[in-house]
């Protein structure tokens, strides 16, 4: 363990601490099902966080993820209502969201629009597009979707797990592999460290950056598909603040908002921490939901404060 991996272990430690606290406070907390539920309930957030990790690692940001998830649910619900087959709907939305990501990537890289502004506009656009399809909720009656949503796979221990979890874990593994074992992934880190250097070192910076946003678009779309399984409805206000939660998870996972440092596994733990907070509040029963917001805010603060202490730049001498 060194200075680089310390943040990850702190994140992990915090998660374990919180989980332990919950277990001590509530009798039924310490069960495998509760743990699995963390994954089931937050699969969509986890997938979004994986994509967001890539974006933030490269020094960028994407505010549009929540809106894209909502748009995905909306388009899926609408198309399913028109009797389209899921086999067409799912690839279609994934393609669409990926292209949307590509568009944002081009805005950011070719037109040099700041990621904050470009994805802000993207967020408006996607949310607005939802409303163009329908102002109200559209429920999903499709047989296949319902069966996927209800599917409770029984584990040897008697606990249940949903399909969403598998999708989440699979994507997380792919994301982890991409970052650690491909040149694409290392280029992401390089860009986050110094985009100019990466360019001068001969790395394909333009291509990579556009790919990053495309990948994030895909992840948002996949998160949307998973969310659709989870909620069985299309609604413009779904995941209204998802981007904040995703950013919070990534920051808590040890990724610097300036880029260049961080990991997928850290972001996953960040997601689990968010889920644990929510679970504890649910168990508590009386605390109102806004306490989650306050807790998350406090945690974000604790993490960035710690990051700022750990990453104090060493004084460059002459």
């Amino acid at each position: 363990m060194n200075k680089k991996t310390l943040p990850f272990f702190i994140t992990l430690g915090l998660f374990l601490l919180m989980y332990a606290a919950g277990s001590l406070a509530y009798p039924n907390f310490f069960s495998l099902q509760v743990f699995i539920n963390l994954f089931i309930d937050n699969a969509f957030l986890g997938i979004a966080a994986v994509g967001m990790t890539f974006v933030i690692l490269s020094g960028g940001i994407d505010l549009s993820v929540g809106s894209v998830v909502a748009l995905t649910t909306m388009i899926s619900a609408d198309l399913l209502q028109r009797e389209w087959s899921p086999a067409v709907v799912i690839p279609a939305v994934l393609l669409l969201t990926s292209l949307f990501g590509t568009f944002q990537g081009i805005m950011i890289q070719v037109f040099r629009i700041q990621p904050f502004i470009a994805t802000l506009a993207g967020m408006f656009f996607a949310r607005g597009a939802c409303y163009l399809i329908s102002i109200d909720t559209i429920n999903i009656d499709n047989e296949w979707y319902r069966s996927v949503s209800m599917a409770a796979i029984e584990l040897p221990t008697g606990d249940f797990i949903s399909i969403n979890v598998f999708i989440f874990i699979l994507l997380a593994l792919i994301g982890w592999w991409l970052l650690k074992f491909t040149r694409f992934g290392r280029t992401v880190y390089a860009i986050g460290g110094s985009e100019q250097s990466a360019m001068l070192m001969g790395l394909p910076v333009t291509r990579t950056k556009i790919l990053i946003y495309t990948l994030n678009g895909f992840c948002s779309g996949l998160a949307g598909v998973v969310f659709t399984f989870y909620m069985l409805s299309g609604y413009a206000l779904h995941c209204k603040d998802l981007h904040l939660d995703a950013i919070a998870a990534v920051v808590m996972g040890g990724t610097l908002l300036t880029g260049g440092v961080g990991s997928v596994e850290g972001s996953i733990i960040g997601v689990l921490i968010l889920g644990t907070i929510q679970t504890i509040i649910n168990f508590q029963g009386t605390l109102s939901s806004w306490w989650t917001r306050i807790m998350v805010g406090v945690l974000i603060f604790a993490f960035i404060f710690m990051q700022s202490l750990l990453n104090r730049p060493t004084k460059q001498t002459q």
Binding site: I61, F116, L244, I247, A248, V251, L257, T258, S288, W290, W291, T292, R293, I294, M295, V296, G297, V298, I300, F301, I304, F305, S308
Partner: peptide, 27 residues
């Protein structure tokens, strides 16, 4: 004072702030 990145520093209150507002109005 702590040289924390502005977007990160103000993110804290962006997230927690609504919780505080709701706390005051009791939801």
């Amino acid at each position: 004072r702590f040289r924390i990145q502005p977007i990160v520093a103000t993110l804290v209150l962006m997230v927690a702030g609504r919780g505080i507002a709701q706390l005051i109005t009791n939801g």
